[in-house]
């Protein structure tokens, strides 16, 4: 193995091979291959119904999806064998397309449970309420957000845009190694999109990676992807640089179907 090849191998964060998955008996993913290295931003684009959200949910461990073939290694470990909570503690984060409301539980209260679950998993000391709030305020300063979301119940009574922003707030607080953003851009106005994209940019580190699942090119003008993939009918049919996203923006998805 050459020096470069070895380095790349070491830097592989996620390696998906021939992944097949079904929901309610219907096959949605039909052999997905994807390799994500640390430090990279990948965009997975594709028409509605191509399997983008299914891929995102399968990686997070949604119990409604069944993996029927293939593998997904995360830091060399079998991701698919882990429960959703272990994946999260290991550093996988999914920003939901449709975030769920948890009535009566404030963001701050919930986030302390999440942060402490992860800390405990890493063998770190859990944070008390006061320490946690200090850390949280500090984090908000870094990303330049105010604390208006902290004492509101998780996603309860939030507008669509607020819910998406709240996912990014969680992303910032939980500091995952692998962040998967499932259509985080949909339902955001231009300003909110910019804020979200800037926050994601600010959180980029050499040791983490981001997978942006999107239907639209818009968000990619704010977050520069290293690799762009086109998912169609449950398979990645084309991969390329960010110029591929531009091409999709101009030509739509129909030509991809023809290529595939």
């Amino acid at each position: 193995m050459t020096g470069k090849g070895k380095r790349e191998r070491e830097n592989v964060l996620l390696e998906i091979r021939d992944l097949h998955a079904t929901v309610e008996g219907r096959e949605i993913l039909k052999g997905v291959d994807l390799v994500v290295h640390t430090g990279e931003v990948h965009a997975i684009m594709g028409p509605n119904g191509s399997g983008k959200s299914t891929l995102a949910q399968v990686l997070a461990g949604h119990p409604g999806y069944t993996v029927t073939a293939g593998s997904a290694l995360y830091e060399g470990k079998d991701l698919l064998a882990m429960t959703p909570e272990v994946r999260a503690r290991e550093g996988v984060f999914l920003a939901f397309q449709y975030p769920v409301a948890i009535r009566g539980i404030t963001n701050a209260y919930f986030l302390r449970f999440a942060v402490n679950a992860i800390r405990k998993h890493r063998g770190e000391e859990e944070l008390g309420p006061v320490e946690f709030m200090d850390a949280l305020e500090e984090k908000l300063k870094v990303i330049g957000w105010d604390d208006s979301y902290l004492n509101r119940p998780v996603n309860d009574g939030f507008s669509g845009g607020e819910k998406k922003r709240n996912e990014i707030l969680q992303l910032a607080v939980l500091e995952p190694k692998l962040a998967i953003l499932d259509e985080t851009d949909s339902g955001l106005d231009i300003d909110a999109l910019k804020t979200v994209a800037q926050t994601v940019e600010k959180l980029r580190r050499p040791h983490n990676a981001t997978v942006i699942v999107t239907h639209y090119y818009r968000i990619l003008t704010h977050i520069q992807p290293d690799v762009v993939h086109v998912l169609s009918a449950g398979r990645i049919v084309k991969s390329g640089g960010k110029e591929l996203a531009v091409e999709l923006e101009e030509k739509g998805y129909d030509w991809i179907r023809e290529v595939a």
């Binding site: 429960t83 909570e85 999260a88 999914l94 939901f96 769920v100 948890i102 449970f113 939980l174």
Partner: peptide
């Protein structure tokens, strides 16, 4: 169940 999954996806048992 969706709420439970959502919380688990954030690391909660």
């Amino acid at each position: 169940q969706t709420a439970l999954y959502y919380l688990r996806s954030r690391g909660l048992s």
